[in-house]
């Protein structure tokens, strides 16, 4: 995780809007799983907890994938005007 300082994980402040910059930074860290990993490694995670977490994550990923596919299928649009009467 060693990167060039002030290039990696850096966000510029625009129009003196510090909060927005903070939120962007937090969002990036959250999405990359950096904050999650930081929180998890504050305390030792016992092997049974690791197993449970990993299994849960696996199941969730499978469910999410299937559900997204389902939603895509229901919302598929193969028409000239995809939403008739809506424009």
């Amino acid at each position: 995780m060693r990167h060039v300082s002030f290039i990696a994980r850096t966000v510029f402040v625009q129009n003196n809007d510090v909060e927005a910059a903070c939120r962007v930074l937090n969002r990036i860290l959250g999405r990359e799983g950096i904050l999650e990993q930081y929180r998890r490694t504050r305390y030792y995670e016992k092997p049974f907890q690791v197993r449970r977490r990993v299994n849960y994550e696996r199941c969730k990923a499978l469910y999410d994938e299937d559900m997204n596919r389902k939603i895509e299928f229901v919302l598929r649009k193969n028409r000239v005007d995809p939403f008739p009467g809506c424009s």
Partner: peptide, 27 residues
């Protein structure tokens, strides 16, 4: 910012490791 300084950039420098030494036991 309230004290009048102009902040150019915000950098995160949180130390995160994916293979850390064993942390302390849970609370």
């Amino acid at each position: 910012q309230m004290s009048g300084l102009q902040i150019v950039s915000i950098t995160d420098n949180t130390p995160v490791s994916w293979n850390p030494p064993r942390p302390r036991k849970q609370r």
